[in-house]
Computed example of a mutant assay.
Amino acid sequence: MNLTDFNTLTFDCYGTLIDWETGIFEGLRPLLERVKPPLTRDQVLEAHARHESSQQKYTPARRYRDLLPIVYKRLAEEWQVPFTLADCVAYGRSVQNWPAFDDSAAALQYLKKYYKLVILSNVDNESFAHSNAKLQVEFDAIFTAEDVGSYKPSPRNFDYMLEKLGERGIAKDKILHTAESLFHDHKPANGFGLASCWIYRRHGQEGFGATMNPGLQPKVDFRFDSMADLVKAHQDALLQK
């Protein structure tokens, strides 16, 4: 299997292209300043993953920017610190401030020359529009949790994406699903027989950060530590053709 075997890259966004762990941690800073004793970054991210995953299960049709305020409330209650509704709402809107990884925009602009680029993301459309501006590329299709009415790892999201891409003549065996999260992306991608590329942003760190533990390690066909490494591997593959 080679990177040049595919004509479409389907991307998770948050954690893969957008540095959501930094965005989450900075967005929660006003709350974290009131937590005693202080929590480590990974303690914060793991608690966030737990409450976010739970809330997505119970309210799958809620838009992400309206789901995050509930996560904020659950965290404040768990850590026993005061909060206001305004605090919760502000956190829900913080996605627009989450930064792109330094290599994302340039990598996407390069890959756009060779592939159709598609987003499959656990986000709402308004929040993604802000992130898309940071990524500086026009995607060929954007499928959000708001569009589908559920959140990955639900198979509904992958069913929806494959149906819509199939209507455009894009065969499943020409799709490479490219993502950081083993829980949200690679495990369900395995269930659909999709080839997958792991962008392992958390390499060198322990645990799963802002994503849940996937349990049994899913199969991945390619692994790179960054989008820049993916680009380099594609350039090398072209030279070998």
Rank of each mutant, 00 (worst) to 15 (best):
R34W: 03
N97G: 07
A76S: 10
R223C: 13
D5A: 10
I70P: 00
F183M: 04
G166C: 09
A105D: 05
R63W: 10
V81K: 05
D5S: 10
G193F: 09
F11R: 03
G149K: 03
D66A: 14
P153S: 03
L85Y: 13
N2C: 10
D229V: 02
Y110W: 12
N125Y: 10
A233C: 04
P37W: 06
S94Y: 09
D225Q: 15
L3F: 11
Y72V: 01
N125K: 15
R156N: 15
V220D: 06
E21P: 00
L176S: 04
S127C: 07
L85N: 10
P82T: 05
R65Q: 14
G15C: 08
F224S: 06
Q109A: 10
Q56G: 12
L75P: 00
E163K: 08
Y64D: 00
T8L: 04
S121D: 11
H130N: 10
H51L: 13
E138A: 12
S104A: 14
V123W: 01
Y14H: 08
P37S: 11
K134H: 09
D236Y: 12
A237L: 04
V95R: 01
D5P: 01
R29D: 12
V148L: 06
T144W: 03
Q235P: 01
N213V: 04
R202H: 07
L111T: 00
P82R: 08
L194E: 03
A228G: 13
D103L: 06
A86N: 11
Q217D: 13
E146W: 00
D102N: 13
I142V: 13
V95S: 07
A141L: 15
V123N: 05
L45S: 07
F139V: 03
G207E: 10
H48W: 15
D173Q: 15
F158W: 02
G15Y: 03
E26M: 13
A90E: 08
L17S: 04
T4L: 14
E167I: 02
A179N: 07
Y64R: 02
E21Y: 02
F192Q: 02
P30V: 12
R201C: 01
M212K: 15
G23M: 05
R34M: 09
V71L: 09
L17Q: 05
F25S: 08
N190V: 05
F25Y: 11
A210L: 02
A90F: 00
L239G: 09
R93A: 12
Q109Y: 07
Q109E: 15
L111H: 02
Q235H: 06
H51S: 11
K57R: 13
K241S: 14
V118H: 05
Y151V: 06
A61R: 06
H51Y: 14
Q96H: 11
E46S: 13
K164F: 05
Q55K: 15
K164H: 13
A90T: 09
V95C: 06
D229M: 04
A145N: 02
K113M: 14
M161I: 11
K73L: 10
H203I: 11
F224G: 06
L120T: 01
R93E: 12
L162G: 07
P218G: 01
D42C: 08
D103Q: 05
L67F: 03
P188W: 00
F222V: 03
R62E: 15
F222K: 00
L135F: 04
E21Q: 11
F224R: 08
D12V: 00
A129E: 11
N190T: 08
R74N: 10
A210D: 01
